[in-house]
């Protein structure tokens, strides 16, 4: 049953992706990207990744859509028809795809309980978080306690990106005022 639900959701995800590739109105592309993120969040719920699904729905479908729409407001939403024929990109994509599909042949099937990924680190985390009376949600325990340095690094990345965005957009209002003044002077 779970395979069926997952299969349907994944097929819808692939369909939305095709629509994103073919759509030339950037406003449409941004909205489709939001739809894509919500579908991805549903798939993640089916795959038991509830925390990731919540983050994807709020960050991927929420914040990303907002900043993309803000950028469209500032730059315009028209995409010119492509100047080149898409033969080379199509070739690169097909070869990469074929190599990746070839790579999946040896992978264990969906949902098998004794594949190598479940045998090594994960049981230790599950056991230790019970033993040390960490939060019942193991994802929280691993994120904040066992792998706290990862989260520290993550916040550093966000801080750096925030400073970068501020520096890039800082002079914007001043520049616009300046050009408006010049225009009124002449």
């Amino acid at each position: 049953m779970i395979e069926l639900i997952e299969g349907v959701l994944l097929t819808m995800l692939a369909a939305v992706t095709i629509a994103i590739v073919r759509q030339h109105n950037l406003f449409g592309v941004v909205i489709l990207a939001g739809v894509y993120s919500f579908l991805m969040a549903s798939v993640l719920i089916v795959l038991d990744a509830v925390d990731v699904a919540m983050t994807e729905a709020s960050v991927g479908a929420g914040i990303s859509t907002v900043i993309l729409l803000a950028t469209l407001y500032l730059t315009g939403s028209r995409e010119d028809p492509p100047a080149h024929t898409p033969a080379l990109p199509l070739f690169v994509a097909t070869v990469t795809g074929a190599a990746l599909i070839w790579g999946t042949f040896q992978l264990p099937g969906f949902g098998v309980a004794h594949s190598p990924i479940h045998d090594h680190v994960a049981p230790a985390y599950l056991e230790a978080s019970t033993k040390h009376e960490m939060p019942p949600n193991v994802v929280t325990a691993v994120l904040a306690d066992f792998r706290g340095y990862d989260t520290l690094g993550e916040t550093t990345v966000i801080f750096t990106a925030g400073i970068g965005v501020m520096l890039l957009l800082r002079g914007r209002r001043k520049r616009q005022h300046g050009s408006a003044k010049e225009a009124s002077d002449t």
């Binding site: 779970i2 990924i117 479940h118 978080s129 019942p136």
Partner: peptide, 15 residues
């Protein structure tokens, strides 16, 4: 995420 799923398993919240 997909290899981490176990069919019949549940989200990793200890209960």
């Amino acid at each position: 995420i997909s290899p981490g799923k176990i069919v019949g398993g549940t989200a990793p919240i200890i209960d």
